[in-house]
């Protein structure tokens, strides 16, 4: 091997990398919150009688699922710019990941909605609950239980997807910080190895956390 590792300077960058990981988590959480809300709406759209709403659902879901996430993020930043819709790197990445997550989650939610028996809704309605109340108190809690696993998976994907921000100029997330350091020093392996460890830790943190949460929430 014709290469001597320079770990010392790379390890000195550890605090910056950690901050990058915090930003990464922030972007993922933000995109997931927005993504889940939109996904619920899309799932309801798919059951609606309105052709327009059903159309919106299917266009969104198909576009999100059939084009690469990298393409989506790039399109939000550079493509929408030509339409005069200029978003900075951070919001572009959030919009891109939200778009992607909403598309995938909408399908999970749609399946989840189907699994909740229609009779429950009718029973609640006949007890005098309003339709929104039924949705919030009867349907949603069960829905979340059904889609909990897909949401956890999607959260991990959201974290991995934040790494795409680097193509639209983001410099303060984990991938951005790593790339900045590696292009200045050209010590690609050292910095990316550290980043890989941090991404792994983030993903583990989410799956383990979700496991604990699931045991707390769903034990009955």
């Amino acid at each position: 091997m014709n290469y001597t590792f320079h770990w010392a300077p790379a390890l000195k960058a550890w605090p910056q990398l950690l901050w990058g990981a915090v930003v990464t988590l922030e972007i993922a959480v933000l995109s997931m919150i927005l993504g889940v809300m939109i996904a619920i709406a899309l799932a309801l759209f798919s059951k609606s009688n309105s052709k327009l709403l059903r159309g919106i659902n299917s266009v969104w879901v198909e576009l999100a699922r059939n084009t690469p996430a990298l393409f989506q993020v790039y399109m939000v930043y550079f493509g929408l710019g030509s339409l005069g819709l200029r978003l900075d790197s951070y919001p572009s990445l959030v919009v891109g990941i939200t778009f992607n997550c909403a598309g995938y989650l909408a399908e999970a939610f749609r399946g989840g909605l189907r699994a909740i028996p229609e009779t429950q809704v009718r029973a609640a309605r006949s007890l005098g609950m309003s339709a929104p109340k039924v949705f919030i108190f009867i349907v949603l809690p069960q829905l979340f239980r059904i889609v909990f696993y897909p949401i956890t998976n999607q959260m991990v994907w959201a974290i991995l997807m934040t790494s795409l921000g680097v193509v639209v100029g983001l410099t303060n997330d984990l991938m951005g910080v790593t790339q900045q350091m590696s292009v200045v020093t050209f010590r690609t392996f050292e910095y990316f190895a550290l980043a890989a460890i941090l991404y792994y830790a983030l993903a583990k943190f989410v799956t383990l956390g979700a496991g604990v949460l699931a045991r707390r929430l769903f034990q009955y």
């Binding site: 930043y77 550079f78 790197s89 983001l170 410099t171 790339q179």
Partner: peptide, 21 residues
């Protein structure tokens, strides 16, 4: 006053001409 780092010269110029920066 912000700074964004792009991965190619073309992207940086495109971002100026598109108005992102």
């Amino acid at each position: 006053s912000t700074y964004r780092a792009f991965q190619g010269q073309a992207d940086a110029v495109l971002a100026v001409s598109q108005g992102q920066i």
